[in-house]
């Protein structure tokens, strides 16, 4: 990989602001493109490691990665710059949309339009889950675990803490058992 560049705090802010504003339907792809390809703050491998850690941690993956990448270059101020950049632009757009929805949401035609978008957005979430699930190539017990979590959340309306604390350790145990035989070789 080519050598990487150390961004200033302002560059952290601007780079992440771009990722936020360009990131329609999620920012993951844009964040990688800007950080790795365009500005070369991190190599592909380094970025994958940070993102992997961001995925293990709770909360938004790309947001977690922003905190860690900001910290890596400039400590706490770096984390704050990257995070602020990521959220501020989209928040402003969201407020404009909210004002529009507030003013016109009750107009029947706009309401119908929003209903159509809502139905499509629901499909987006379901499609994302299926896509992620099919890429995992998960062993049967993991598929069962995922479906059990889905049923618990949707069907039985079990609170999230119970699901995560109840099924999380089971999943980690299963994953750990699966990877042990490989480690033995």
């Amino acid at each position: 990989m080519n050598e990487t560049v150390v961004p200033t705090r302002g560059e952290l802010f601007l780079g992440y602001a771009k990722a936020g504003l360009f990131g329609f339907g999620g920012v993951a792809a844009w964040a990688r493109r800007i950080i790795v390809e365009e500005r070369r703050w991190l190599t592909e491998r380094e970025y994958a490691e940070v993102l992997g850690l961001g995925q293990v941690l709770p909360g938004p993956n790309v947001g977690n990665a922003a905190v860690m990448i900001g910290r890596r270059f400039h400590g706490l101020p770096g984390s704050l710059c990257a995070t602020a950049g990521l959220y501020i632009g989209p928040l402003c757009i969201l407020l404009l949309l909210a004002a529009f929805y507030d003013a016109y949401g009750q107009v029947p035609r706009i309401g119908a339009l929003m209903q159509g978008i809502a139905a499509a957005a629901a499909g987006m979430v379901i499609g994302t889950a299926i896509k992620m699930g099919s890429r995992l190539k998960a062993p049967p017990e993991m598929v069962a675990l995922g479906l059990l979590a889905a049923a618990a959340a949707f069907w039985w309306r079990v609170p999230l803490p119970l699901i995560v604390l109840g099924l999380g350790p089971v999943g980690i145990f299963c994953a750990w058992r699966r990877q042990r035989p490989e480690a033995a070789h």
């Binding site: 293990v56 139905a119 379901i126 992620m132 699930g133 949707f154 089971v170 980690i172 994953a175």
Partner: peptide, 24 residues
Amino acid sequence: LKAINGGLVPLAVGLILAGGVTLA
């Protein structure tokens, strides 16, 4: 770390599916 990730991702996928079905 690998085990934690491997164990939690199926859970996350299931939960995302539940959210989508709720919206649907």
